[in-house]
């Protein structure tokens, strides 16, 4: 018996809401959205955690400018805080080197981190998921009773096709879908109607922000971007229902 599986929900007992940020493809802004959502919620006064579960391409630490920090040991692992956000990532243990990991190992590492991370009391835990619906996503679904998924898409037909598949799997598994966010929106290219036809909530749109790149690595600058202002609108838009 793997004992770690039985302790995951205890580790999350103090967390009110878990939002898994996922999508069908890489490079559509899942990590950026996760990091900025976590920072924006923290700025609004909530207690927030961010877990980077994308072990093949961890980038939360780059977005938040996490350097020279590491978790402390206290009956498990307590994540350090960046701008008020408790941030957990495998990069604390890889020295930011490449991790050549197959799916089975990926799964084991995710279970290990979920079993030993002491989040304490949180209003929100944002999980930055790897692309698609693989082992880690399925484990998050299996082990986390409170999780809701937020799916990131763009208007690209290629991305939308994979997003539809991700949404279908989540619906089949009867997993709550918090909403779909259209990222990098340009002109009048909206996927809102396409998403609504799938009977999935459309959370909102984030405009393409050409200035965003310059803010990466600096949480304060990230909070001043147009991207963050858009995220803030989404949070307040849904305050009556979810956030």
């Amino acid at each position: 018996m793997d004992p770690r599986i039985n302790v995951i929900n205890k580790r999350l007992a103090g967390v009110k809401k878990i939002i898994a940020v996922s999508g069908g493809k890489g490079g559509i802004g899942k990590s950026t959205f996760s990091a900025v959502l976590a920072l924006t919620l923290s700025k609004a006064g909530y207690k927030v955690g961010l877990m980077d579960l994308d072990f093949w391409g961890p980038s939360g630490h780059v977005l938040l400018g996490a350097q020279g920090i590491s978790p402390v040991e206290d009956k498990g692992i307590v994540p350090p805080q960046i701008n008020g956000v408790k941030f957990m990532s495998i990069i604390y243990y890889t020295e930011d080197k490449t991790l050549a990991l197959r799916r089975a190992g990926f799964d084991q590492a995710a279970i290990e981190l979920l079993a030993v991370t002491q989040w304490g009391a949180l209003d929100y835990l944002i999980m930055d998921m790897p692309p698609g619906v693989g082992d880690v996503t399925l484990d998050v679904i299996r082990f986390m009773e409170k999780v809701k998924f937020c799916i990131i898409t763009t208007h690209s037909k290629v991305v939308m096709e994979t997003v539809k598949k991700t949404l279908n799997i989540l619906k089949q598994l009867k997993i709550p879908i918090f909403g779909v966010v259209q990222n990098m929106k340009e002109k009048n290219l909206s996927v809102e109607m396409q998403i609504k036809r799938l009977h999935v909530p459309f959370w909102g749109k984030i405009d393409f922000d050409a200035e965003l790149e310059g803010a990466i690595g600096d949480p304060k600058k990230l909070l001043e971007t147009k991207f963050s202002k858009n995220v803030n609108k989404l949070i307040h838009k849904d305050s009556r229902n979810h956030i």
Binding site: I77, I90, Y92, Y93, T94, E95, K97, T98, L99, A100, L101, G105, F106, Q108, A109, E112, L113, V116
Partner: peptide, 11 residues
């Protein structure tokens, strides 16, 4: 590091 997450042995 391996003590905390044995899979980082691959690094």
């Amino acid at each position: 590091a391996i003590h905390f997450v044995p899979e980082v042995a691959h690094v």
